[in-house]
Computed example of a mutant assay.
Amino acid sequence: MRLPDWEQRLADVVAAHQGGVFVWGSRDCFTFVRETVFRLTDQCIWPEIRYGGPRQATVRLRRHGFRTVSDALADVLPEVPPALARAGDVGVVIEGNAEAGVVVLGAEIVGMAPGRGLTVLPLVRLHRAFRVG
């Protein structure tokens, strides 16, 4: 269940990532999604997982039994069609040959991207979506 002030919490977590640099394992697409879910619900969907690059991130996911970020999200959150995603929900986009975690803001989604930090994309880029609260 979302906390009563989830909208302000969503704005706060997005603001906290603006201007920040992408850092694998601490300020990346997966940690951004995990932090957003926690801030909106007080639910820790994944323990803190440390990794220093894309290869280590893949290894960590596989150690938990998942091939992709969306597999990990589907294990703990209910999936919804991307067209039904609402502000505060999370999901993934496809970047190159990999999935990247994002947060839905409404008609836009945001995520942390290497070399760019917080990146805004149109909702139509959402590949899979998961309900938060």
Rank of each mutant, 00 (worst) to 15 (best):
N97M: 14
V14F: 01
V120Q: 07
H17E: 10
A98K: 13
V37D: 04
E79T: 06
Q43S: 03
V80A: 05
A57H: 07
P47F: 06
E99R: 03
V14E: 09
D5I: 09
V76Q: 03
G52T: 15
V92T: 14
A113S: 07
L3H: 00
H17M: 13
T58P: 00
I94M: 13
P122N: 07
L40V: 01
T36F: 01
T68R: 10
V69I: 13
I94E: 12
G111T: 09
G117Y: 02
E108Y: 10
R125V: 14
V23E: 11
V59D: 11
R131E: 05
D28T: 09
P122Q: 12
E108F: 11
L126K: 02
C29S: 15
R60C: 15
T36E: 02
A85F: 08
D75E: 15
C44H: 08
P82K: 03
A16F: 00
W6A: 14
L118K: 05
G96M: 02
I45E: 00
A87L: 01
G25N: 04
G115P: 02
E48A: 09
V76G: 05
R27C: 11
D5T: 04
R125M: 04
R39W: 00
F38L: 00
L3M: 08
V124R: 06
C44L: 15
C44I: 13
A129T: 08
V132G: 08
D89F: 04
T119L: 11
V23Q: 06
R2E: 04
G53Y: 07
V80Y: 06
A85R: 10
G117E: 09
T119K: 07
G106L: 13
D42P: 03
V110S: 02
F30I: 12
P82A: 06
P78L: 04
V21R: 11
R60Q: 14
C44M: 12
G115C: 12
R50D: 15
P54M: 15
W6G: 02
R39T: 04
Q18M: 12
E99L: 08
L118S: 00
L84F: 14
L73N: 02
V132P: 10
S26A: 15
V13N: 01
P122R: 14
G91M: 11
P47V: 12
D28P: 05
R39I: 01
R27M: 10
V92Y: 03
L126N: 04
C29H: 02
V120I: 09
A72R: 04
P114M: 11
G117K: 13
I94W: 03
R128T: 09
I109R: 13
A85D: 03
F130P: 10
W24N: 02
P122T: 08
P82M: 01
R9G: 02
W6R: 14
F30N: 14
G52Y: 07
V124Y: 10
R60T: 07
I94R: 03
R34E: 14
E48P: 00
V13Y: 01
T41H: 02
A100K: 11
T41D: 06
S26M: 07
F130W: 12
W24V: 13
V23Y: 03
